[in-house]
């Protein structure tokens, strides 16, 4: 369930029907307890954009699970940048404020 092909399938489901998206984000959120899953999910193209869209959507359950997953993914600097590109700046601000100097410097450099 945690390999990249399976996770890519679930990420595709995020963009489909609302019910399917809600279940998929719920499953991804549950799987995100595993560090390898977090690493792989962040690399799947379009995943973070979809999660930010769901975070701002009308469905409270999907939004809650998307928020949980985004927090889990924000441990990676690259993911934080993807989130900022998608219009979700909270992790970026948090990282600049609280993160280590190296990560902050890297973020500033990219920005």
């Amino acid at each position: 369930m945690t390999d990249v092909v399976c996770l890519s399938g679930l990420v595709k489901s995020l963009a489909r029907d609302a019910d399917e998206g809600r279940e998929a984000v719920g499953l991804l959120s549950e799987l995100s307890d595993i560090s390898a899953v977090r690493r792989r999910i962040g690399r799947i193209q379009g995943c973070i954009v979809m999660l930010v869209t769901m975070l701002n959507g009308d469905d409270p359950t999907a939004s809650h699970d998307a928020a949980k997953l985004l927090i889990a993914l924000s441990s990676n600097t690259q993911n934080v940048l993807h989130m900022a590109e998608a219009g979700y700046f909270k992790p970026l601000v948090h990282c600049l404020k609280e993160g280590n100097i190296k990560a902050s410097f890297r973020l500033m450099h990219v920005l």
Binding site: M1, S13, E23, G26
Partner: peptide
């Protein structure tokens, strides 16, 4: 997971629900 990509919408929803229970 293999059938997730090619199934009809209601089947996909059931697949993910089953996967959630298994997880």
């Amino acid at each position: 997971f293999n059938r997730l990509g090619s199934s009809k919408p209601h089947n996909r929803l059931t697949i993910i629900q089953i996967l959630r229970i298994l997880a």
